[in-house]
Design a protein around this nucleic acid. Structure first.
Lengths: 244, 244
DNA sequence: TAGATATAGACGTCTAGACAAATATACAGA
DNA sequence: TCTGTATATTTGTCTAGACGTCTATATCTA
C-alpha cells in the first residue's frame, strides 16, 4: 500500500518531513478537524511503516508551528482557533472576544474582603493591610474557560462590588454604578508559568499546560487606580497581541 | 565527577532539561561567547555521561529559543547578535544598522541593463521588455555579509545609476543626483526559502541555511516607482521587525 | 451511589547503534 | 601553487526497545 513516502535514501527529503507534509495537508483538507484527536503515535507509525520516533519528530515540528496540541497521556489534537487577545490602552474582555465572533461571559467564582498584600497595595496605591475586595471569576469564550481572574478593588471605594458584578456579569457595567464611567489600562506585565493545581482545575485544563499570566492596573479618568488584575489565561487558547 | 545533573528517576526534571539549563547558564556566564563553537555533541554526551540523543534534545530546544545556530557538518555555535531590521514606511539599510551600533556598507557586485521581466515591469509600472538597470549589491554589517540585493530602476529615468552608486555607496545619495530628494516604501512582501548556490556563496553562508527574501517597491514624493528591490537576508543574522 | 484503586491507553524520556549528509582538513598531482 | 580527491569531523536521520509519567476508564468496596 502506498503511504505517499519516498523512502529512497538520497531522495533529499527526510521521512519525518514527508510525514509532516502529508499530515499537514490532511489537516488543511479537513481530514482532521480543529479539536479532533489525531491517530496515536503508534497508529501513525504503523500507517507509515516507520519508527514511532520518526512520527514523533514530525509531530514535534507541527506542534512547534502551532498546528497541534500534544498532551501527555491524552493524545495529539488539531489546534483549534487561538484567540487573539488584544492588550492595550482599552483592554476589554468582552469586546476582545466579540470581535472574533465569540460569546463572552464571566462566571463568578468567589469574592472576599482581604487585606491588601504588598503587590496589590503598591499597585492600587493603598496602605498594606487596607481592605480590598478580591473577586475571582472565570472568563468564558463560547463554552470554553479561557481565563481565571483575581480582580482587586479598594473596598472602601467599591463596597459590595461583587453584588453588582454578579448581577451584571460585566466589570464595566458594575464600575459605572460607582460613578466610574470609563477606565483605561495603565500597565500590563506578562509572564508564562505552570498553573497551580486549583488553577488548572478551575480552567479545566491539564496541570501540564502552561498559563499566560498578566498583572495589570486599570485607572479611572483622573488616573486613580480602579482595579488591579491578575489573570491566568489558558495558553493553548489565547495569545496576547500587544498594542502600543 | 559531578556534572550537575540529578539523575534520579522521578526527580521531576528530565535530563535533557537539566543539560539545557547548565549550558544556558554557561552561555549567560560567558563560558561560551557569541560566535563561539560549542563542544561537539559527542563531547557533551561524554561530559554529561548521557546518550548523544539526550544532548541533541537539549541543543534543539536552545536552537528553537534562538540561543544557538546548529550547522550540519560544521558544529553548534552560540548565536551572535541578531540584527533587528525595521521594515516600515522609511526602510533604510544604513540607519537600520547604525541604530544598533553597526557599521553599514554596500559592496557593489554587478550592474546590468536588462529587459524588465513581468514582476519587475509590473512593480515599476513600465512595459515588459523596457530597459531597467539591475544593480546587485551585498549589504555589510560591520564585517559580515547580511544581505544580497537586486535593485531594479527604470533605466531611462536613472541612466548610469550604477556609476553613482559605486561612487557613493548609498542608494539615497545616488537617487538625489537624479532629483529624488526622498523616497518611501510602498509595499513589502516577505518569504523564507533556501538560497540558490550562487546566493549562498555571495552571502558567505552554508547552502543549508534559509534566506529571508523581501520584495519591495520604493516610490518618490509623487508616488512614482523609483526602485523595485529583491533582497535576500541571511536569516541567521537578521530578523525583520514590521512597523505599521 | 460515590469514592478509591487498578488497569489500560497515550505521550515523554533515555539509551543504543548504524548509516547519511554536509563541511573541514589533509594530501597528492599537475 | 592551485586544484581535485580522499579522509576526518560533525550534525542529521532512522530504527529499536524499555521504562516513566500522565490521563482516562473500568472495577471494586464501603
Amino acid at each position: 500500500m502506498d503511504d505517499g513516502l519516498d523512502r529512497r535514501r538520497g531522495a533529499g527529503v527526510a521521512l519525518w518531513r514527508q510525514i509532516q507534509r502529508v499530515l499537514e495537508s490532511e489537516i488543511r483538507e479537513g481530514v482532521f478537524k480543529p479539536g479532533e484527536r489525531l491517530p496515536t503515535e503508534f497508529e501513525l507509525a504503523t500507517r507509515f511503516s516507520v519508527n514511532r520516533h520518526t512520527v514523533r519528530r514530525a509531530l514535534a515540528e507541527m506542534e512547534e508551528k502551532g498546528l497541534l496540541r500534544v498532551e501527555q497521556g491524552r493524545g495529539t489534537f488539531v489546534h483549534e482557533h487561538v484567540i487573539d487577545y488584544a492588550v492595550g490602552k482599552r483592554t476589554r474582555f468582552s469586546s476582545n472576544l466579540s470581535a472574533q465572533g465569540l460569546e463572552a461571559a464571566h462566571e463568578f467564582v468567589r469574592a472576599e474582603i482581604v487585606e491588601a498584600e504588598s503587590a496589590v497595595a503598591e499597585a492600587l496605591g493603598v496602605a498594606r493591610k487596607d481592605k480590598v475586595m478580591m473577586v475571582d471569576s472565570i472568563g468564558m469564550a463560547d463554552d470554553r474557560r479561557i481565563s481565571l481572574s483575581s480582580q482587586y478593588l479598594p473596598a472602601r471605594r467599591f463596597p459590595d462590588f461583587d453584588v453588582g458584578f454578579r448581577e451584571t456579569g460585566s466589570v464595566t457595567e458594575t464600575l459605572k454604578r460607582y460613578g466610574v464611567e470609563d477606565y483605561t489600562r495603565a500597565w500590563t506585565r506578562v509572564i508564562a508559568r505552570m498553573p497551580a493545581g486549583a488553577e488548572a482545575d478551575l480552567l479545566h485544563q491539564p496541570k501540564s499546560r502552561p498559563v499566560l499570566v498578566t498583572e495589570a492596573l486599570d485607572v479611572d479618568g483622573e488616573g486613580r487606580p480602579v482595579s488591579f488584575n491578575v489573570t491566568r489565561f489558558a495558553s493553548d487558547w489565547v495569545q496576547l497581541v500587544i498594542e502600543p
